[in-house]
């Protein structure tokens, strides 16, 4: 019971981060029908920019509210800009070309970012060493939220198996309960992620821009005919996705503390899988798929074998797709002939 509760907490924490990244995949896919392979790397850049911002702000800002807000803002702005640049110069010129070509540029951008960040570029500007690119060494993300225990749950422990009980040993009262600690940053991260998802939901379904985005996603040619500025909508969608990725990057860094240039590749792949499970192009589906995937992985590790974790993640994907080829919440689109 205690174990299960802890697994659920872990799974939710992981799932919300998958979800934020998966949202970016799904939105871009929605408007462009493009798997944006560079998306995971944008998230990595977000984490690094957050790191740099925290570094520049100095230790004084660590743990303070304005410090954390600034870190998030700087990273969001930077990644938004990066997303815009990537869309403008690597994807837009190829929009009317076969979809695979844009996919290759996406892979190219992903290589450039993930391997480029492995270079160490530290020129001296005005007598000070300025790190422009961080190098391959992993770095420890500063604690922008000072960790504290938010609440400690005492859950009754399961009775030990008879053969495990040492009759000679005195009964230890501490063994009757299992402590489950919920940390402040877990709660804060969860709230931030929920707020972002809620905000996105409102944006997509309640605003004019959201309507334009859905129109472009439905059929961008018709949308253009109806006077929707397709280029601008797509660019904004990219920036939005990248901004979410930046937040995901920082939340990830708060949770797992280690950032390195390749982190986007692995997490990006999982998030993409989550988006497909949920039905790619579908905003709620991405969140559902992400949480389902994370919980599935968590429970496999907890109750089956941890060495099969990745296989189970992909097996889950395949099963979902075979049973529901359009993903959990995806809609079947009839093909017009």
């Amino acid at each position: 019971m205690a174990g299960l509760l802890q697994h659920l907490i872990n799974g939710l924490a992981e799932g919300t981060i998958y979800a934020l990244v998966a949202l970016g995949y799904t939105m871009v896919y929605g408007v462009l029908k493009l798997i944006n392979f560079a998306h995971g790397d944008v998230m990595m850049v977000g984490a690094y920019v957050g790191y740099a911002a925290a570094f520049v702000l100095g230790d004084g800002a660590l743990g303070s509210l304005w410090g954390a807000v600034l870190v998030f803002l700087v990273s969001i702005l930077f990644c938004g800009l990066l997303g815009w640049l990537v869309e403008r110069f690597a994807y837009r010129p190829l929009r009317e070309k076969p979809r695979l070509t844009a996919l290759i540029t996406a892979i190219g951008i992903s290589f450039t970012l993930s391997y480029g960040f492995q270079l160490k570029v530290q020129p001296e500007i005005a007598g000070k060493k300025v790190t422009l690119l961080p190098g391959a060494d992993p770095r420890t993300f500063p604690e922008i939220i000072t960790p504290a225990e938010w609440v400690t749950l005492h859950v009754p422990a399961p009775a030990p198996a008879p053969d495990e009980v040492d009759p000679a040993a005195p009964h230890d009262a501490a063994d009757d309960f299992v402590e489950i600690i919920i940390w402040n940053w877990q709660v804060i991260s969860f709230v931030i992620a929920l707020a972002l998802m809620g905000g996105l939901q409102v944006l997509v379904f309640r605003t004019k821009f959201g309507r334009a985005m859905r129109a472009v996603s439905h059929d961008h040619r018709v949308a253009a005919l109806l006077g929707i500025p397709v280029d601008r909508v797509i660019a904004l969608t990219f920036m939005l996705g990248s901004a979410l990725a930046a937040c995901a990057g920082i939340l990830y860094a708060i949770k797992d503390t280690l950032i390195q240039p390749m982190l986007g590749v692995q997490l990006g792949l999982k998030a993409f899988v989550a988006a497909v499970i949920g039905g790619i192009g579908n905003v709620q589906g991405a969140v559902l798929g992400a949480v389902a995937l994370a919980l599935c992985e968590e429970l496999v590790v907890g109750y089956a074998s941890s060495s099969w974790r990745d296989a189970v993640a992909f097996g889950f994907l395949i099963v979902v797709l075979l049973l529901r080829p359009q993903g959990l919440l995806g809609r079947v689109q009839a093909e017009k002939v």
Binding site: A90, L94, I104, T105, T112, G116, L119
Partner: peptide, 22 residues
């Protein structure tokens, strides 16, 4: 050695932009 990979990535982008049909 260290800039081979990022260069390769950029090259891919350039190839696709200049000759999208391959």
């Amino acid at each position: 050695e260290q800039i081979r990979k990022p260069l390769f990535g950029l090259l891919l982008v350039v190839i696709m932009l200049t000759r999208p049909q391959g």
